[in-house]
Design a protein around this nucleic acid. Structure first.
Length: 588
DNA sequence: GCCGTTTTCGGCCCGACTGTTTTCAGTCG
């Protein structure tokens, strides 16, 4: 096992011990051990294990050293397996309900025999939870709300997760000899932040083998429909996937139709109608007129079908420039396509770096060198490190001395020329509840840039929160605003604040706003970007990476930026290193 | 379970908020 896989096991052990009511300091020791493990260089792990020197790492003692060594060598740990078997899985799931922690879950389990969410729901409905000491009417109500939200949210999936499930399916479909074309459609293709189900459009001559393959994919839990033109399956994750089979000459129409959005399709059909045409998932045909010359209509239809092989040709037949899937939300894209005013959208290959990334110095899971190597492997010219500031205790935020040490470490790394990728020294500085920043000005002045973010006091009024963020933006050291709303997709809405006033302040002060590309955030929301950028707001697409793998989250950020009509010019981190170096200091 | 110019036992990172209490426990970031 790799060090981060082992760290994951240690974290799971901590969660399970917590649920069992173990000594909280023992629990913390496992979590701390996981963090300590992540902070070492991967090549050092093998050496430390082989030479029996794991205990030289602070936070790893005799017991953890043995477990880590076992996991590293065998990938197995009997202690972990036994522990896992001894805790009902429903209890772990209950941790996802807001307001429920290990203590309360234990109380519910020990005193009411509740071992999963279904049992909890029943107990709440019967009023048994409110009767428990430590709980009350209000808690009971909140639990029911939390469960209901969870169920409502569970019907959708993060784009990132859906994309990960879709990729091998699409790959598999395309590899089938019967398949002429295959494409994923729906909100996944439009790059929406959450996805309801997966849609695959396939053109094939011989459909039976395709359907058979689709229904027999690994991970399929249930086949809910199986026919000649359509099949539906459900995976263990709850995600549903639909397969639609069409003849090759209908492929472009079906792909467009099932990509949507509904609003876009309605508008486009309307446009077709005004031109005497009828657009559907089957084709583009002359509108059914007064029963005149049916043959002529059919001939025209056949001609259209022959001619239209791609979506671009479909748009052209309606007098439009091609509209990228991300823009098809019925938000003015058809008018823009008519006038030839669609933007040239930013692309993943335009990115040359990113600024909001963490390391093991705070709550990241990869070291500075690992992160830099990963950025370089992505072809980036620069990587910004912005670990948490001191007020984020929970995230191991950096006090001034540790921040200074990190600045020095980054300077040394750059000077060593070990990587071509340049590292910028920044910080993700907490915006304190009154809008002050978490470090003194002279500390902030030692950095290349400062990301300012809200991590506390989410319950402030809209006015308080707006004033707080604006004050932070007006600070002369602020370079960019992190995850503007604090939302977590499918988990919790953002805090209340006035987007307009914050955007105005950012423009006025030359501060960029982040498009946090974490698939769980995608914040600021794409719906705000078009107008804000037109007014001069600059965007930074930041992965908020806590390990090397999540640097790739910029992919989700690029999609969100494209949905926000952003061009390369409007995104700061498409600029080359030289420009960025000059720009960071002068705010722009 | 880890750690030690508090050193082999007895501590172990903070502070706000909420809902439960009648002085605090649990959760969250």
């Amino acid at each position: 096992m790799t060090k981060n896989e082992i760290a994951e096991v240690l974290d799971q052990i901590a969660t399970l011990l917590e649920l069992k009511g173990e000594n909280p300091f023992k629990v913390r020791a496992y979590s701390a051990g996981a963090r300590a493990l992540e902070a070492i260089e991967p090549e050092d792990l093998a050496r430390l294990v082989d030479q029996g020197e794991l205990q030289s790492v602070k936070g790893i003692g005799e017991a953890l050293a043995e477990k880590i060594a076992t996991l590293h060598r065998t990938g197995q740990l009997e202690f972990f397996d036994r522990l896992k078997a001894s805790v009902e899985p429903g209890l772990v799931e209950m941790l996802e309900i807001p307001g429920l922690g290990p203590k309360k879950i234990r109380a519910l389990h020990d005193r009411l025999g509740i071992s999963d969410i279904a049992g909890l729901t029943a107990a709440c409905r019967e009023g048994r939870v409110a009767a428990l000491t430590g709980f009350g009417e209000k808690s009971q109500q909140k639990l029911l709300e939390g469960i209901a939200n969870r169920e409502a949210y569970a019907q959708r999936h993060l784009w990132w997760d859906a994309a990960a499930e879709a990729a091998p399916i699409l790959h598999g479909l395309r590899a089938l000899p019967q398949v002429q074309h295959a494409e994923a459609a729906g909100s996944l293709r439009r790059g929406l932040e959450t996805v309801g189900d997966l849609d695959f459009i396939v053109a094939a001559e011989d459909v039976a083998p395709v359907v058979a393959w689709f229904c027999a994919m690994p991970g399929v839990k249930e086949v809910t429909a199986r026919g000649e033109t359509k099949a539906s399956v459900r995976f263990a994750s709850g995600l549903q996937a639909d397969l639609r089979l069409v003849p090759e000459d209908q492929f472009a129409f079906a792909l467009h139709h099932f990509t949507g959005s509904k609003a876009h399709n309605v508008e486009l059909r309307h446009r077709a109608q005004t031109r005497g045409l009828s657009l559907s998932e089957w084709g583009l045909e002359p509108a059914a007129g007064e029963g005149t010359v049916k043959e002529k209509a059919e001939a025209t239809s056949a001609r259209h079908r022959r001619r239209i092989k791609t979506e671009a040709e479909l748009f052209a037949a309606l007098g439009l420039h091609p509209i990228p899937p991300e823009l098809r939300e019925g938000m003015g894209e058809i008018e823009a396509a008519e006038r030839g005013e669609l933007p040239t959208l930013v692309e993943e290959s335009d990115l040359r770096g990113a600024f909001h990334n963490h390391t093991t110095a705070s709550d990241g899971r990869s070291t500075l060198a690992e992160m830099t190597a990963a950025a370089e492997a992505l072809g980036w010219e620069y990587l910004g490190i912005a670990d948490h500031s001191k007020s984020s205790f929970q995230a191991n935020g950096l006090f001034e001395e540790r921040l200074a040490a990190q600045v020095a470490e980054i300077a040394a790394l750059n000077a060593s020329r070990r990587f071509r990728c340049h590292v910028f020294a920044g910080v993700e500085c907490d915006i304190l509840p009154d809008g002050r920043l978490d470090y003194a000005d002279e500390v902030l002045a030692t950095l290349d840039y400062v990301v300012v973010s809200v991590h506390s006091a989410f319950a402030q009024t809209e006015e308080e929160m707006t004033r707080r963020i604006v004050r932070a933006i007006e600070h002369p050291c602020a370079t960019m605003l992190g995850h503007i709303s604090g939302r977590l997709l499918l988990r919790r809405p953002g805090y209340a604040f006035d987007h307009g006033r914050v955007i105005d302040a950012a423009i006025a002060n030359g501060v960029a706003i982040e498009l946090n590309a974490s698939p769980l955030r995608l914040d600021m929301d794409w719906r705000h970007w078009r107008r804000a950028a037109e007014r001069g707001l600059r965007c930074v697409i930041n992965p908020d990476a806590h390990d090397t793998a999540s640097l790739q989250h910029v992919r989700a950020g690029i999609l969100a930026a494209r949905k926000g009509w952003l061009t390369r010019e409007q995104v700061v981190n498409t600029r080359p290193l030289r420009d960025v170096m000059a720009g960071l200091r002068s705010r722009g």
